[in-house]
């Protein structure tokens, strides 16, 4: 198994997002783009719905007038255990990693059929309709750990797998386990309200495990049986 974290079974990475903490500030959206070399596409392409955001904030209006309320749900690839995107890929570009139990996207296999995006109930996948520019010297900021995608390639949130790998390799080199909290995807790391927590489900003492025990826990579109690995904690409600 990868990583050498010493558990009987391999790791199962899980994200918990506390919607009662989330204030919708958008830091996660930008942080994700900065970490993962996500291209910006400009106004017109965004108006066509071709934005490349791996992570978006869904804003819901509830009620009207004096009773108006807002809910935010940060939504990214839910890393389904039973992922609808996987069986439809004709070239095995979107497939399951045994080691991390993550949905991988293999860019150099992808031929751009977009079947996976059509089949994703979470609208988590974005497609490179064009080659997008990083005019010099803006390309200096590109993360060397993350592939820069070309035209015709599907992409999506990877749970910052480069960071998972890095932590696992560091732990292996030091002959120890990856400790809880060592791996932080860019969104969780930036989150000003500490709403996003990431960790290993198989570690019974991990924070994600404890948080997910909350009665507020739910998953998006649970009825579809996709078994997402992003767990949301419902926002609070106090009637005035």
């Amino acid at each position: 198994m990868a990583g050498g974290n010493g558990h009987e079974e391999h790791t199962k990475w899980v994200m918990v997002i506390d919607l009662d903490r989330c204030n919708g500030c958008g830091a996660c959206v930008t942080a994700c783009a900065m970490e993962n070399n996500v291209a910006f596409v400009g106004e017109d392409e965004n108006a066509y719905g071709r934005g490349m955001h791996w992570l978006r904030l869904q804003r819901y209006w509830e009620g009207e007038g004096d009773d108006l309320r807002v809910r935010y749900i940060p939504t990214m690839c839910q890393q389904c255990s039973n992922a609808p995107c996987e069986p439809v890929c004709p070239v095995y570009a979107t497939l399951h990693s045994e080691a991390e139990e993550i949905n991988l996207q293999v860019y150099n296999r992808c031929i751009g059929t977009r079947y996976c995006a059509n089949n994703c109930p979470y609208i988590a996948r974005t497609f490179n309709w064009f080659d997008y520019e990083w005019p010099e010297p803006l390309n200096f900021q590109l993360n060397p750990d993350v592939t820069v995608r070309r035209r015709g390639i599907m992409e999506k949130c990877t749970f910052c797998i480069q960071r998972i790998r890095r932590a696992e390799e560091d732990a292996k080199a030091e002959g120890r386990e990856v400790y809880d909290g060592e791996v932080q995807p860019a969104c969780a790391q930036a989150c000003p309200t500490e709403a996003i927590v990431f960790g290993n489900w198989r570690d019974p003492n991990s924070r994600v495990r404890q948080l997910a025990a909350s009665e507020r826990a739910f998953k998006l579109e649970e009825a579809l049986g996709t078994e997402p690995k992003v767990i949301y904690l419902a926002g609070g409600r106090h009637e005035f």
């Binding site: 500030c25 958008g26 830091a27 959206v29 930008t30 942080a31 783009a33 900065m34 005019p135 010099e136 010297p137 803006l138 390309n139 200096f140 900021q141 790391q189 930036a190 989150c191 000003p192 500490e194």
Partner: peptide
Amino acid sequence: GRTCARAQASLQGLYDP
């Protein structure tokens, strides 16, 4: 350890063409 969106994008000020 936390940042806002503006801090995240501050690199794009440094590397503004």
